[in-house]
């Protein structure tokens, strides 16, 4: 089990009386693509926010590379190797595409009084940022204002920013939604390329086809609880999953 990267151990997050995430456990190995699926309100994004440090778990623990990270703030999680994208894309709109990626490159230096007084816009950081942009296929847009990119390219910029953190784990929050088929296919290829470099990917996806096609394993959440876990073909035929998505009685028709 040496290649275990992330483990959620009985993690719960309550908001007042609402159990957004309730006693959820699953784990992720190095180089694995794990799909996190479930109906709206199942707690998927809350799970992401717990792993990336936006929320601390009410109960349970989150272990990254053997270190308990429950309650760590987002910037520490980023430093430990968790890169993420957001469901609603929000580039730093007053900065150019290239500068947006450069923001993430300062990761190691932001915390210190002296280290943070160095220049950010260096030749080395431009070069590095441009390489990452080229990797995701928007190198030609480096100088564009980031606020005016079409959705597909904004998603790629988000991916580039997350990759600039040199993550061990990449969290993709509905990165494929709202994209045309060709754009989604290109992005899928990118995700597979990222995994090929040994980066684990945890993705939230509404499009079942994409989720099933990309993921090695799937975790299904429903009403904050873990409903099922397994390979795509097992999940596809799991009556509990079909029921959660389509309602009671549907499983009889589906099978």
């Amino acid at each position: 089990m040496n290649d275990l990267l992330l483990r959620l151990e009985g993690v719960s997050r309550h908001f007042g009386g609402l159990k957004a995430v309730d006693d959820v456990s699953f784990s992720l190995t190095r180089g694995e693509i794990l799909g996190l699926i479930g109906p709206n309100g199942a707690g998927k994004t809350t799970c992401f926010n717990l792993i990336s440090g936006v929320y601390a778990p009410t109960k349970g623990d989150i272990v990254l590379e053997g270190v308990s990270t429950a309650g760590f703030p987002p910037y520490r999680m980023a430093a430990l190797g968790v890169g993420r994208t957001f469901q609603v894309v929000k580039p730093f709109s007053t900065l150019s595409v290239l500068n947006n990626v450069q923001v993430a490159l300062g990761l190691k230096r932001y915390g210190g009084v002296l280290s943070s007084l160095g220049p950010w816009d260096t030749k080395a950081s431009r070069k590095e940022a441009l390489e990452i942009l080229e990797e995701v296929g928007i190198g030609h847009l480096a100088a564009s204002p980031s606020g005016q990119l079409p959705l597909g390219n904004q998603r790629r910029l988000e991916l580039a920013r997350a990759l600039a953190l040199k993550p061990k784990l990449l969290l993709l929050d509905e990165t494929f939604s709202g994209l045309r088929h060709e754009e989604a296919a290109l992005l899928s290829k990118l995700v597979l390329g990222v995994r090929a470099r040994g980066i684990s990917v945890l993705l939230i996806e509404h499009n079942m086809k994409v989720a099933m096609g990309l993921s090695d394993r799937l975790v299904v959440l429903d009403h904050g609880r873990l409903l099922a876990e397994g390979k795509p073909e097992e999940i596809r035929s799991d009556p509990r999953v079909v029921e959660a998505y389509l309602g009671k009685g549907a499983s009889a028709h589906a099978s």
Partner: peptide, 10 residues
């Protein structure tokens, strides 16, 4: 929120 995800200690 995004600054935090980029490693910035806000």
């Amino acid at each position: 929120e995004i600054a935090g995800a980029m490693g910035i200690n806000s």
